[in-house]
Design a protein around this nucleic acid. Structure first.
Lengths: 173, 173
DNA sequence: TCAATTAGTTATTGATTAATCACTACCGTT
DNA sequence: AACGGTAGTGATTAATCAATAACTAATTGA
């Protein structure tokens, strides 16, 4: 069972998980470091032993969320048959939307945060995901891979919105 | 020239314009009513003569932004030839993205705000726009109008994101 | 066994902010 | 020449919050 051996690395990822939840539920700017601490079952100042500032915490949380998508997509790319490539990538993303909804909500928030460090992280994430999908489509022999990649990402963005505002009819017919 | 006759209605819309700017630039939660007031060239408490709370101000600002899109799309629908319908709707939206970027940024922020009044406003806006586009496509004899409407909205969402994080290469090939 | 390292807390602060209150200035009417 | 309505401001407040400082408790290893 490997109980709760509170290593430093362990604590750090607990705080990150708490932050993702709280930021997603409450909104980054309205969320307080005290709320994050409470969720992680530690005191508020102890958060700052692991992250130099609230913004640094957000940045790390964003990295986690992008790595989730990148890792999942890479696995699909190296395991799916070419004719199933698009469908399998869609399924993988739908799975993330279900099981890690908060990470998606966090990314949506970050889309409108003006701090340059945050924007860079978002651009990096999108660039990497786009590259993976594009290469997957090319490798699978899909026609007009750029256009198909664009549409793949576009559908993803609308599904994010439909999910966030709880309007399932927006997702499809 | 009809200078600045400061009617009450006039003031109210000045405050709304200021709020749209400030909220979009700074983020709703980080933005202060003092910043809005400064932009509108009035004192901070005077904002509350026109809006009962900061959230009511956000709600009114959102209504303005949705009315912009709805009004523009309705005009296109009744003036464009069927064969140009989709293209003209796209052009209309691109125009709004250029000329009223802040209203789009405001809507993007509102997508992740959990207050029920805000979510209802967002659902209402999306429902109305979706209905207009769908009817336009049906009236123009476009095949699979539901799917085409979905893709139209989806492309819009991705363009919003690409614009917000300043990543133009995300928009197309 | 004790010194250093690690893990964690309580207390505090300085800044910020939505909202309220009490006030002043101006304008048209009678 | 005074009244009532409209337009607007300064001062204040009660709450909130990120970050720091100063502390204690437990663990480890030589």
């Amino acid at each position: 069972m490997a109980k709760d051996s509170a290593t430093s690395v362990n604590r750090k990822s607990e705080i990150l998980s708490a932050a993702i939840e709280v930021f997603a539920e409450t909104g980054y700017y309205r969320a307080t470091t005290a709320m994050v601490a409470e969720r992680a079952k530690i005191s508020q100042p102890y958060v700052f032993r692991f992250f130099p500032s609230k913004e640094a915490l957000l940045l790390s949380a964003l990295e986690v969320s992008w790595e989730r998508i990148v890792g999942s997509f890479r696995q699909v790319v190296q395991s799916a048959a070419p004719e199933n490539m698009e469908k399998e990538l869609i399924v993988a993303y739908e799975r993330i939307m279900e099981e890690h909804r908060n990470e998606i909500l966090l990314q949506m928030q970050a889309q409108t945060i003006a701090e340059e460090t945050i924007r860079e992280s978002m651009r990096g994430g999108f660039r990497e995901v786009r590259e993976i999908v594009l290469e997957a489509f090319r490798g699978a022999g899909i026609e007009k891979p750029e256009e198909r990649t664009f549409l793949f990402l576009a559908r993803g963005m609308l599904c994010n919105v439909a999910d966030a505002i709880d309007m399932p009819e927006l997702k499809m017919t």
